[in-house]
Design a protein around this nucleic acid. Sequence first.
DNA 1: CCCTGATTCGC
DNA 2: GCGAATCAGG
Length: 234
Amino acid sequence: MSWTDERIEKLTKMWEGGATASQIAEELGGVSRNAVIGKAHRLGLKARPSPVKANEKPARAAAPKKAKTAPAEPPAAKAAEAAPAPAPAPARPAAPAPAPAPARAAAPAAPAAADDPKPASDKPRIVSVGPGGFLRQGPGDQQAPIPPAPPRRLVPAKPSPEIADKTSLLDLNDRVCRWPMGHPGEPDFHFCGEKVNPGFPYCVEHCGRAYQAQLPRGARRPPPPLPFGGPRVR
DNA sequence: CCCTGATTCGC
DNA sequence: GCGAATCAGG
């Protein structure tokens, strides 16, 4: 796959919209997560809360990497160039937060917004945890511009718009929900595609459909005979 | 383990 | 320019 203008545009929008590299890669198809990250950096759009970047080290924070073909330079050279380095190190560049749109939201009762000069690390706060581990956010924490462009016109995409963005048989892997949506043979048949509930072939929601609680002994119906041909559809 | 993004470096 | 391999933090 090559980086066409369309693909680059999609990458850019999704990246800026906060989608993860994996999501972008999956959406684009034909590219790996690494490819997306590499491309994103080459495009110059980076800066994103990185799990590994929190640390503030002046230089190669570690991992000089192995020089496969050539042995690493002698440390002496490093020392030499390191010494004269002034390294101004101003206390705080004051990095003004990107300050996303003023958020027209009047945000009444915005909790704890008053006294804390450092309001949240721009990461949505978790308010509670739902069954299966999905995370609920506070109403005020919704990042509005995540998928900023549903009003898409012009749909020259090869797959029919009906099944665009749907998880097809080829998209199935160990990480996405295999719950069928619709019926095979139908034009828009696809799979759920949500992230699976770890350890199951389905997402949390569809695990609920697939694995139902047993009724008490007395209330149980005698199991219907399963002659042959496998389980029938519901 | 899973996930994340960052970086390097051979191609 | 590209992206696999690798690293490192959560």
